[in-house]
Write a protein that binds this DNA or RNA. Structure first.
Length: 312
RNA sequence: GGAGGUGUGGCCGAGUGGACAAUGGCAGCAGACUGUAAAUCUGCCGGGCUUCGCCCUACGGAGGUUCGAAUCCUCCCGCCUCCA
């Protein structure tokens, strides 16, 4: 079986556009590797491909969940594998597109088989965090899983809670699970194409895109979601932009400050994505400044790396 | 012309005699990341070094007081407000 093509890179570089062009040229189908485009109703702020674009090429793993439903790297990897298999059975080329590094790693390298968490335990930990603070929880983690505790930053709330949850639910430390079957032991073959831009250009694009999103009715979108009764504390509402616009709608923040914050957080996010993908193995980087002109190089690279059958 | 205020590192902004190369934020740079990942977290950020430390230059400018000054005094320069 041919390897799977993956388009990676920071936000606002045009990954979706490139994927669409490639899919049309090659008779491919797109598998979305984005943590937020899965949610119905989160459209504008997630830069979700438009319906018209999705009509041109099949897109998978978009609009598959309601905003209150839970998604995760593992869930993504399972669904993406299914989608890839189906696409290949149809004789089409799967093209995975997304900027969520962990999700892509989960798909292509496989997560360690850590047992599922327990919502009840998670809720209790959350409550303890609110009442006692992080320090005692961290102490407990040091007792239950010193290896992981050592590894984590003292203030890393999210990971401390997660590690504690695993240890409490499974009776084994997270470090034991991951040691047993580390990343990479159940991977699938992939050819990675990376899109990149000089910082200054990328930052300009980010600012421009925020403006465009607002003009396209982003505020109405957020207001509509809240009106439907979805809690602003849902993970989906913690996404960049959504959390700021919620605060604006609640009168806690001026629109001007909200926009500035959205741009800033998006820039920082893009930087984090670059850091992640930079160390990712065998990414072939292409300039995102003129995607059309990059096509031949991208196709050539894909062919070289074993995508001959579908791309020949 | 008179009265008052103010001048801090790329920017904003704390600091009013020693613990100050100077809180914090922004901007910038680098990094971590195993099921919430658009999340969560970390480091650097005046200059130079042999970088858990040392040296130099620094808080508008010049002097002064003091063992010691971003912090007090004097003069000068810039900016702001009010009165004329």
């Amino acid at each position: 079986m041919d390897p799977v093509l993956a388009i990676v890179g920071p936000t606002a570089t045009g990954k979706s556009a490139l994927a669409l062009a490639l899919a049309e040229r090659l008779g491919g189908e797109i598998v979305n590797a984005d943590a937020l485009q899965v949610y119905r109703g989160f459209d504008i702020g997630t830069a979700k491909p438009r319906l018209e674009e999705r009509a041109r090429v099949p897109h998978h793993l978009i609009d598959i969940l309601e905003p209150h439903e839970r998604y995760s790297a593992g869930e993504f990897a399972r669904r993406a594998r299914e989608a890839i298999t189906e696409i290949q059975e149809r004789g089409k080329a799967p093209i995975v597109v997304g900027g969520s590094g962990l999700y892509l790693r989960a798909l292509f390298e496989g997560l360690s088989p850590v047992p599922p968490g327990d919502p009840e335990v998670r809720r209790e930990l959350r409550e303890r965090l609110d009442s006692e603070g992080l320090a005692p929880l961290r102490e407990e983690l040091i007792a239950l899983d010193p290896v992981t505790a050592q590894r984590l930053g003292a203030g890393d709330t999210q990971r401390v809670l997660r590690a504690l949850e695993v240890a409490l639910v499974s009776g084994r430390p997270l470090s034991a699970w991951t040691a047993e079957q580390p990343f990479g032991t159940q991977g699938i073959a992939v050819v990675r194409i990376g899109l990149t831009l000089p910082r200054s250009i990328l930052y300009d694009r980010i600012a421009g895109r925020v403006t465009q999103m607002l003009e396209a009715g982003w505020l109405d979108e957020v207001a509509a979601l809240l009106r439907r009764g979805f809690s602003a504390t849902l993970p989906a509402f913690q996404a960049i932009g959504y959390r700021q616009l919620v605060r604006y709608l609640e009168g806690m923040l001026s629109l001007e400050l909200a926009v500035a914050d959205i741009e800033r957080e998006t820039r920082r996010f893009a930087k984090r994505q670059e850091t992640w993908f930079r160390k990712e193995p065998a990414v072939a980087w292409f300039s995102a400044q003129d995607l059309e002109r990059q096509m031949p190089g991208v196709l050539e690279h894909a062919k070289h790396r074993g995508l001959g059958r579908a791309y020949g």
